[in-house]
Amino acid sequence: MNAENYDLTRVFNEMSGWTFMQIALVILLCFLLYQLLRYTVPRVAEHLPARFRLLALNLIPLARLILFAVALVTITPMIFNVTLKNFVLVLGTVGVALGFAIKDWATSAVAGIVAIFERPYRSGDWIRIGDDYGEVIDIHTRSVKLRTADDDVVTIPHSRIWSENISNANDGSKTLMCIAEFLVAPDRSTAGIIDILTDVAHTSPYLDWSRPVKVIMHNEVYATRVRLKAYPFELRDQFNFATDLTTRGRDALINADIKIVSTPEFGTTPN
């Protein structure tokens, strides 16, 4: 009994007011440094050459991990008497209880660490998780934040990477494929469609010249679905680019006497 008491008392270091102050200072310092980076890096990244922007943004989660590790390594010896025996003792006694209490948070936090190294998404990527599609604007310890095209911010826990497919449209590169779709009448010749739509893409100011432009057609019951695929040179232009391809593509097809299929008008039937 005495031996057990002795071991337990040696698990913790003597805590004074100054120790608490030191711990608070370390936490505050790491927190402030992280907030400073979160505030500064995205603003500086906006002014960096485009090719360095995503790189700079991805420093934030890495910095958070490093600061967390620094805080942990600094604070732990202040509280605990760090020996292998004590480590096993603490893990055995509080590990299970703590595990149950913060299970979900811990799962997401571990998934967040995995996400930093496995990189299913990075800051600035355009990803789809479930029904949500948007730009990764922030990666926290527990969750990732997306900004959708409608300017909604969606917070998704990292733990979703264990169970769901993550679709990443650009995967760290500075461009992604955009698609404009057209439904044309299936009973007409399709001659000229590929050339017209390829020209539409080649005349867009948003186009990344170095990437291929493709036109794919697919027969469906009521129409031929035509998909124009091309890449903008800048991720953020994807919706402008798709709009430009769609509006000018539709006009060009109509001007070339290619019939765009639309749903029939279901008006009131004359008596």
Binding site: A50, R51, E234
Partner: peptide, 14 residues
Amino acid sequence: YPHVRRILAEAGLP
């Protein structure tokens, strides 16, 4: 021209 090319390169245009 040198300034314009640099500006476009930094903005990521082709």
